[in-house]
Deep mutational scan, measured.
Amino acid sequence: DENEERIRAFALYKGIDPEKARELWERGEINKDDEEKAWREYK
């Protein structure tokens, strides 16, 4: 689903483990601007 892809995109963008990215996502600790930037680059 799209959230999974967004988490993966963010992990790649930040160079972090996707599981770590998922934890940040679930806790609401992902910066929305960074997340959008990562998503645009990923697509």
Rank of each mutant, 00 (worst) to 15 (best):
W39V: 04
K14Y: 15
G28V: 01
I16G: 00
A21Q: 00
I16Y: 03
I30N: 02
W25H: 06
G28S: 04
E19I: 13
W25K: 03
L12S: 10
D34S: 03
A11V: 01
G28Q: 04
A11W: 02
E19L: 11
I30A: 02
A21L: 02
E36R: 04
K37P: 02
I7N: 01
I16C: 06
K20F: 13
R27K: 14
F10T: 06
W25F: 13
D17F: 03
R40F: 13
E29F: 08
R6M: 09
E23G: 06
R8C: 15
Y42I: 04
R22M: 04
G15N: 10
R27I: 06
R6I: 08
R8F: 14
G28W: 01
K37V: 11
E35D: 09
E35I: 15
K20N: 07
L24Q: 05
R8Y: 14
E35G: 06
E5T: 06
E41G: 04
Y13I: 04
D34H: 02
D1H: 12
E4Q: 07
D1R: 12
A38R: 02
R8I: 14
Y13N: 03
E35H: 05
E29G: 07
N3P: 07
G15C: 15
E36F: 06
G15K: 10
E41F: 11
L24H: 03
I30F: 11
R8K: 14
P18K: 10
E41W: 15
R6S: 03
W25I: 10
L12G: 04
N3F: 15
E26M: 12
E4S: 08
E4R: 07
I16S: 00
W39E: 04
D33Y: 09
E35W: 15
A38D: 02
K32Y: 08
N31R: 07
Y13T: 02
I16A: 00
E26H: 08
F10M: 12
K14R: 06
I30K: 01
R40T: 12
W25A: 03
I7W: 13
F10R: 04
E29I: 07
W25C: 07
A9L: 07
K14D: 01
W39C: 06
A9M: 05
E4T: 08
D1T: 12
E19C: 15
E23Y: 08
D1Y: 13
Y13A: 06
D17E: 11
A21H: 00
P18R: 09
A11I: 02
D1W: 13
W39T: 01
G28H: 04
L12N: 08
E35F: 15
N31F: 05
D33I: 09
E23R: 08
N3Q: 14
I30V: 12
E29V: 07
P18Y: 15
K37T: 10
D33P: 03
L24N: 00
R22G: 01
K32I: 10
L24V: 03
E5Q: 10
K32A: 12
R27M: 10
D17C: 15
R6D: 01
R27W: 05
Y13K: 02
K20T: 14
E36N: 07
I16M: 09
E2G: 09
E5F: 06
K37M: 12
L24C: 13
K43N: 13
D1A: 10
N3W: 15
N3D: 13
A11M: 02
R40C: 14
Y42S: 04
E19T: 09
G28Y: 02
N31K: 08
E41P: 02
I16P: 00
A11R: 00
I7G: 00
E19D: 13
G28C: 11
Y13H: 06
E26K: 09
N31E: 10
I30D: 01
E5S: 05
R40M: 13
L12P: 01
R8G: 02
E2L: 13
R8A: 08
Y13S: 03
A9D: 03
E2S: 12
E5I: 07
A21S: 03
E41S: 09
K20W: 11
R22W: 07
I30P: 01
K20Y: 14
K20E: 14
E26N: 10
E26L: 13
F10K: 04
A21M: 04
L12C: 15
E26Y: 13
R22A: 05
A11G: 03
D1S: 12
R22Q: 05
E2V: 12
P18M: 15
E19V: 12
I7F: 05
R40P: 02
E36W: 06
D17I: 05
A38G: 05
I16F: 03
I7V: 05
A9Y: 07
K20P: 01
R27F: 04
E36D: 09
I30H: 03
L24G: 00
A21D: 00
I16T: 01
A38Y: 07
E41T: 08
D34V: 05
R6G: 01
W39Y: 07
A38T: 02
I7Y: 05
R40E: 13
R22T: 02
A11F: 01
E19K: 12
D34A: 04
E19R: 09
K14C: 15
E29Q: 09
K43R: 11
E2R: 11
E41Q: 12
K14N: 08
A21I: 03
Y42F: 10
E36L: 08
R40W: 10
I7C: 12
G15R: 05
P18N: 11
R8S: 03
Y42E: 02
A21W: 01
E4D: 12
E19F: 07
K43I: 14
K43P: 07
L12V: 12
K20L: 14
K43H: 13
A38E: 02
N31T: 14
K32T: 09
R6P: 00
G15P: 00
E36M: 06
L12M: 14
R40N: 13
K32P: 14
K43Y: 09
N3R: 14
Y42H: 04
K14V: 13
E35R: 06
A11S: 05
K37F: 08
A11E: 02
R6Q: 02
D34W: 05
D1F: 11
W25R: 02
P18I: 15
W25E: 00
D1Q: 13
